[in-house]
Amino acid sequence: MIESFYYSSLLFKVSALAYLLVLMAYLAAVFVKKRWMGKASLALFGAAFLICSALIASRWIAAGRPPFKSLYESLVFAVWTISLVSLVAEWRFRVKLVGLLSSLGIAGILLFSLSKRDVEIIALPPALQTWMFIPHVISYFVAYGALFVAGLGAVLHLFFPGGMASHHTLGEQEKIDFSVFTYQIAKLGFLFLTAGLLLGAWWGQNAWSNYWAWDPKENWALVTWLVFAAYLHLRNIGSMDGRKLAWVVIAGVLAVVFTYLGMDYLPTAGDSLHTYSGN
């Protein structure tokens, strides 16, 4: 792992160190119950996000194509979208615990990405040489980022079902209700998940003459979409308590993780046209 870190690009190293700082700042903010500490963590998170943006941009330039082809590249992009959604959520909901959990998750993803670091930049095969590649992947990864953050909200709801006191927040509000937080972020994730799924079908039709080939990745994308559709409906019909709803969201996030990383473990993986390079 250290060896892989040593050979990674300078911007990757700086990004990883920046996110490590973010994690430490958020941890400190839990104990130092000062508003300025929360704001400093948020500012650091913003800076790490900008460095990660530079990393993605530099990779884009070096590869001469969008940097979403390999698993390593997609993991870095997942870090970027999780950061983006977390920052927006933190700014919108004025809660700093989400930043703590997000940066913890990001640190895990960056550590995992080191084991998947692709040494060579891979060229795009003909099917990926289209503008559709960009909106499809961006939609999905914004969705994944949002649903990951929604999942964090669901976990927080399980620990703090009655909401959280104001000293854990950045704003003036008395309490934050994590079920509302989860719902709002999940809605955003679901919208992008829908767009990603349909853009993928449209692209599949153009590239492979098939908008739906019952490919394992497509099927699991549908499963994920159905789980979150079910969650949104369950929450609105009000027939399930908050704790159970939180578990549905967590199940949905696990489905997202399996859709993203688990396809190689399926007996039908050989049929898939959706495998990552360097996986």
Partner: peptide
């Protein structure tokens, strides 16, 4: 919706 999700997932574990 849940039934469709479960069945779709099941279909990925059995070669089609």
């Amino acid at each position: 919706l849940a039934a469709i999700a479960l069945a779709t997932a099941l279909g990925t574990f059995v070669p089609q």
